[in-house]
Amino acid sequence: MPSHTPDYRELVSAAFEGEAVEGGVDVAALRRIRAGEFGEWLTALDRSGLFGADALARIAEQWRADPTVLLDALLAGADTVTTRRTRAEWAALDRPESRSRLG
């Protein structure tokens, strides 16, 4: 019997729809996502009642493996300009000058 790991991306995106509509994801949140600090988003999903403990664990595992999965979910309902600006801010976190400003 083949093993199937559910992909919750569409449901997570629906749960976060509208999160980044007004102004995108702030830089502090982007830094937390990059650092693997997913607690606030996992709590929001837990409170939604849409996900059980196993699903939340799998989602957290997906995010740890690739934090852009969470970023994509947060940007799912955003307009093109907001998405581009937020992705540019995300990419800027890779630059040495951005890391030095982190403290």
Rank of each mutant, 00 (worst) to 15 (best):
G52I: 05
R95Q: 15
H4D: 06
R87C: 01
R31F: 03
T43Y: 12
A57M: 06
L56G: 11
R101W: 13
R31T: 11
D26F: 08
R87M: 05
P6F: 11
G103I: 13
S3M: 01
D46L: 10
A55Q: 09
D46P: 00
V69T: 13
A78D: 10
V21E: 15
L75A: 05
S13T: 09
A57D: 15
P6D: 13
A55H: 09
L71F: 02
A29S: 15
S98G: 07
V25W: 05
R58Y: 08
W90H: 06
V25G: 07
V69K: 12
L30E: 07
Q62P: 00
A91P: 01
L102P: 00
L75Q: 08
A28M: 07
R99P: 02
F38P: 03
R84D: 14
R101E: 15
D72P: 04
D94C: 07
I33D: 13
P96M: 07
A88Q: 09
W90N: 04
A28D: 12
S98P: 04
W41F: 14
L75M: 07
T68E: 10
F16L: 00
D7P: 04
A44E: 06
E17L: 14
A14F: 12
A60G: 04
G24M: 03
L50G: 09
T83H: 10
A88L: 13
S3W: 04
R47C: 12
L93Q: 12
A60V: 00
W90G: 05
F38W: 02
R101I: 10
G49F: 12
F38V: 04
T43G: 15
P2L: 14
T5K: 04
A15V: 12
H4L: 11
S98R: 04
I59P: 06
A29M: 09
E89A: 15
R58D: 14
T43I: 11
D54G: 09
A60N: 03
A57G: 07
A78P: 03
A35K: 03
E97H: 12
R99I: 12
I33A: 08
F16W: 01
L50S: 05
S13I: 04
R99G: 14
A14Y: 13
D26R: 03
L102G: 06
R87N: 02
L71A: 03
T83S: 15
W63E: 01
S3C: 01
A28C: 02
D94Q: 13
A20F: 08
L56F: 08
F16N: 01
G24E: 04
A91K: 02
A14G: 11
W63L: 00
R9N: 05
R87S: 02
I33G: 10
V81Y: 15
R9S: 09
E97T: 10
A14Q: 14
A29V: 15
